[in-house]
């Protein structure tokens, strides 16, 4: 049984079909990626799996551990083990890093927050009592968000553009954290348009205009980046929609 099954998931927003029937199966303990150009529907798919407001009224179904979760709210899905890291993490005036991490943590021990910060390459003493506000850079907040997910011990971790705002050195910390979560048995779903991030995945889905147009092992999808080859017409890449044979 797959951990997550997307069954012909369709979603309309303001009368426009954004997801046009996504079908995918994700197994436990593997790293997946959804790749594609801007506007392909990748982040929409992430929000739909998480059940954010405005992304729950779907056709088709989302099955998690054998049960439909399409009617569940965000927090109910999270308590079943699904979580999401946003491309641009939220800022919280006054809320300390420690409180933020511990709010998510499965085990409510101060050590959990420290260990999670270390795991994403942040020095606990420097960050644990700081506020999660604009005094932190986007990259720092991104790592702290990932630390909270580590502490949560989620079963399915969706990372939306995990390299966004991250410098090259820090990117390795993010990749290490992905590896760590996988070793603990979590399934990772990367939403990306970066070949570097894609290479962390074992299996990938190529999205275009709200559809999965190709799927396969990571190596099979990499050529999309190398040749800008997109086997469909897409509004943001009008010149490269050449069909499969043109790739």
């Amino acid at each position: 049984m797959s951990l997550l099954e997307l069954e012909d998931v369709k979603l309309e927003i303001n009368g426009k079909e954004i997801l046009k029937g996504i079908t995918a199966n994700l197994d436990k303990g593997k790293v997946y990626a959804f790749v594609g150009p801007n506007g392909a529907g990748k982040s929409t798919l992430a929000y739909t799996i998480m059940g954010l407001e405005g992304y729950r009224d779907i056709e088709g179904d989302i099955i998690f551990e054998g049960e439909s979760i399409k009617k569940l709210g965000i927090d109910e899905r999270a308590r079943r083990g699904i979580t999401l890291a946003w491309q641009e993490p939220a800022r919280y005036e006054g809320l300390t890093v420690a409180k933020f991490i511990l709010a998510a943590a499965r085990r409510k021990s101060p050590d959990v927050a420290r260990d999670a910060l270390l795991a994403v390459g942040l020095e606990p003493e420097e960050y644990i009592n700081r506020a999660l506000d604009k005094s932190l850079s986007g990259g720092e907040r991104k790592k702290i968000e990932l630390a909270s997910i580590l502490a949560m011990e989620a079963k399915l971790v969706i990372l939306d553009e995990p390299d966004s705002g991250i410098d090259v050195a820090s990117l390795q910390n993010i990749f290490d954290a992905i590896k760590f979560m996988k070793e603990r048995g979590a399934t990772i779903l990367l939403i990306t348009h970066s070949p570097f991030v894609l290479r962390q995945a074992e299996y990938a889905f190529l999205m275009c205009s709200g559809m999965v147009v190709e799927e396969g092992k990571m190596e099979d999808i990499v050529p999309y980046f190398e040749g800008k080859c997109l086997p469909c017409r897409h509004k943001n890449m009008p010149d490269v929609g050449r069909g499969k044979d043109g790739c």
Binding site: M50, L52, E53, G73, I74, D75, R77, A78, R79, I82, T83, L84, W86, P89, A90, R91, Y92, A103, A104, E145, S148, I149, M152
Partner: peptide, 10 residues
């Protein structure tokens, strides 16, 4: 802010 915390189970 709200949805991030809810996505952690709150």
């Amino acid at each position: 802010q709200l949805e991030t915390l809810m996505a952690r189970g709150l």
